[in-house]
């Protein structure tokens, strides 16, 4: 009698999952996220930065993980831009190249609309070092370069690095205060941990690798990290509290809210399947 609980058609599951996600999105429901200690640590590390040295942001994600990594990178970039801390974008993943250009441009445009009269300029506030092939060999090359302007030569637009105002006083890894690395790829995060030693390390991971990231957070190899989109949502709340003029731009919050409803649906189906098993056994 209860065997049907274990044999619900897959298309019904698909529809229910899609509806559970779509409804809060349609009605623009944004719930305050659960607090995340790891995102707090990320926020504190960025707040403590002083102008002078630059931040290196490695966006090693592609279209497959942009749902979680893009909001993380956007929020981190926004925080740096609001504090007027210069940063350089880089990646060791070829498919990330468009994000290296688009993310800072989109954030700068949004901030300029929010604060008319203030400008963020390429070359002065940020630069794009582009995709560096070779993975770990590129990372260790940059870390050990005596003058990375000579090693890397140009930015992604073929402009010589010594012609960019942001790189005027940046020679080596010693002139980088912080590394932010956003990825969902296996092995890339480990390569940065292994070969880019020195600056403070902040990480943004997809939810799949949260347990893995915790082992590095525990050993203080990373000073803070985003736990997937939930971490980004909590960070967005902290950013809005720190900068009240920020307004209602809340992509991470929206996605996190929709995600929560989806979780409940999946859990309900797991319970349903086990209920079918339990009642089926009892009947036997």
């Amino acid at each position: 009698m209860f065997s049907f609980l274990e044999r619900v058609d897959r298309r019904i599951i698909y529809i229910l999952v899609a509806v559970s996600v779509a409804v809060p999105l349609i009605f623009n429901v944004s719930l305050r996220p659960a607090p995340m200690a790891t995102a707090d640590a990320f926020f504190t590390a960025v707040e403590r930065l002083e102008p002078g040295k630059i931040v290196l942001i490695s966006a090693d994600f592609g279209p497959g993980t942009l749902a979680e990594n893009r909001p993380q990178a956007e929020l981190a970039i926004e925080h740096l831009m609001r504090k007027r801390i210069g940063f350089a974008m880089i990646s060791v993943y070829a498919l990330a190249s468009p994000f290296l250009r688009q993310l800072p441009e989109d954030v700068a445009a949004r901030l300029e609309r929010e604060m008319p009269g203030q400008k963020w300029e390429y070359g002065k506030d940020w630069i794009n070092l582009g995709f560096q092939p070779g993975g770990m060999i590129a990372i260790q090359g940059i870390a050990k370069a005596e003058d990375m302007r000579v090693f890397l030569k140009t930015d992604a637009n073929n402009i010589p690095l010594e012609d960019l105002p942001l790189m005027k006083d940046v020679k080596s890894i010693k002139d980088i205060s912080l590394l932010m690395q956003f990825t969902g790829l296996l092995g890339v995060f480990n390569a940065w941990v292994q070969y880019f030693q020195g600056p403070l390390f902040l990480h943004g991971c997809t939810s799949v690798t949260i347990p893995e990231a915790f082992i590095y957070f525990s050993s203080k190899q990373i000073a803070g990290f985003f736990e997937g989109i939930a971490g980004a949502a909590w960070y967005e709340v902290m950013l809005s509290e720190r900068f009240p003029q920020r307004g209602s731009y809340n992509v991470a919050l929206r996605v996190n809210t929709g995600l929560s409803f989806a979780h409940l649906v999946v859990l309900a189906f797991i319970v349903l399947g086990n209920a079918g098993l339990l009642f089926g056994r009892r009947k036997e």
């Binding site: 897959r10 599951i13 649906v265 999946v266 189906f269 797991i270 349903l272 399947g273």
Partner: peptide, 13 residues
């Protein structure tokens, strides 16, 4: 997302 929902329902016993 759809596949993992189906997989969780069917196999997580």
């Amino acid at each position: 997302a759809f596949y993992i929902a189906t997989a969780a329902y069917r196999s997580f016993r």
